[in-house]
Amino acid sequence: MTTLLNHLAEGSASAPPLLLGPSLGTSYALWDAVAPELSVAHRVVRWDLPGHGGSAADLVAPGATVGDLANLVLALADSLGLERFAYAGVSLGGAVGLHLAVHHPERVASLAVLCSSAHFGGAKPWQERAARVRAKGAEGLAELAGSADARWFTPGFTVPRLVRDHRDADPAAYAACCDALAAFDLRDRLGGIRVPTLLVAGREDPATPPAQLREIADAVPGATLTELPGASHLAPAERPEAVLTALRAHFDGGAGRGMAVRREVLGDAHVDRAQSRQSPFTARFQDFISRYAWGEIWTDETLSRRERSMVTLTALAAHGHYEELAMHVRAARRNGLTADEIGAVLLQTAVYCGVPAANSAFATAQRVLAEEDTGAG
């Protein structure tokens, strides 16, 4: 028996993890136009609800709660070795994110809730939908799929793959997810959310109108609300560029931008090695380095990267940090410095920081440059 949610992982295994949750009736294909771009700076893991896409229907039972779905997400994260992760979810997937932020704040680094709510209009409509699907089975789902475009998209827009996912979902699992929506209400717990939170509303969303996202934004300390014109309930499918812009600004911030710069300067191989050695004990320090050193200092355009490399080589040589110096000699070459320019920097260091320091620095630089030349050859 399969005990894990079906999922798709994209991006470097050492990049900061980002989990993406779907809406009721859809699969992880909801994120097709967004996830590949997010995976440039993140290890993106998108997952299917029970009975949807490739997830087994028996992962959920009648009377299910959003907490049950959140536990399945945590089990998936555990299986992938993800101790802490950023999370974004649409509708029911967004409710899962709110539950995680309230009940498992130690696991959630940052949260984005799209086209969702802290409550979904009371239990009765969802109980009635669940009863209808249980009574009619696949026929009931087909009827609901027939009206999906009106509930999900602005007039004239559709994504056939997602409508097909709705029609092909398992009726029992779909009904159990309706049970979860019927029982969900976190309005009295929103003030306890302390993770950075973004709310994204589709201005033309009839299912979770902007007022419901505003209610969350007003209750969660420091939360940000973005309203997307021309978007209905499944904004990542209908307005992927706008959603991508909002999510990048929220999730990348200093750490995400810093990680990208860190990779550009030091190279993927070095960063992947550093990330693979990361432990819960060192995770906050690594985040600090990415956010502050690389996300704020190295991205400051006052100095060019060439100039920053020169300063860095001088400082490392002066303090005798020769292992770091070797790494930054390679980075200096990547930033456009020639071997002669690196030598001139070390001569300058000899004058103002001492000959012994420069002597050891020349030895380190000579070894690295020789390795670089051999590799190029």
Rank of each mutant, 00 (worst) to 15 (best):
L4Y: 09
G11A: 12
G11K: 06
A13M: 04
S14K: 03
G21R: 07
P36C: 05
E37L: 10
A41W: 09
H42K: 10
V44A: 00
V45A: 00
D48Q: 04
H52Q: 09
H52M: 05
A56Y: 04
D58Q: 14
D58E: 15
P62A: 03
G63K: 01
V66K: 08
A70F: 09
N71F: 04
L80D: 08
L82T: 09
E83Q: 14
A86R: 13
V90Y: 07
S91W: 03
G93Y: 15
A95Y: 11
V96L: 13
H99Q: 14
H99L: 07
A101T: 04
V108L: 10
C115Y: 01
S116I: 11
G121A: 07
P125S: 11
A130G: 01
V133W: 07
V133I: 15
A138M: 03
A138Q: 14
G146N: 08
S147K: 14
D149C: 04
W152H: 02
P155K: 11
F157Y: 15
P160T: 04
V163G: 07
A169E: 06
A172N: 12
L181S: 00
A182E: 10
R187P: 06
D188V: 07
L190F: 11
L190W: 06
L199G: 13
A201P: 03
D205M: 12
P206Q: 04
A207G: 02
T208D: 10
P210E: 08
P221Y: 06
T224S: 10
P229R: 01
G230Y: 11
S232V: 00
A235P: 08
F251H: 04
D252H: 13
D252I: 05
G256W: 13
R257K: 01
G267K: 06
A269P: 09
S276W: 03
P280Q: 06
S290E: 15
W294E: 00
I297P: 05
D300S: 05
T302F: 00
R305C: 04
E307R: 14
E307P: 02
T314W: 00
A318F: 01
A318H: 05
H319C: 07
A326P: 01
H328L: 04
R330I: 05
A332D: 02
G336R: 08
E341Y: 07
V345T: 12
A350P: 13
A358K: 11
N359E: 05
S360K: 15
A365M: 08
A365T: 10
R367P: 00
T374F: 14
G377M: 12
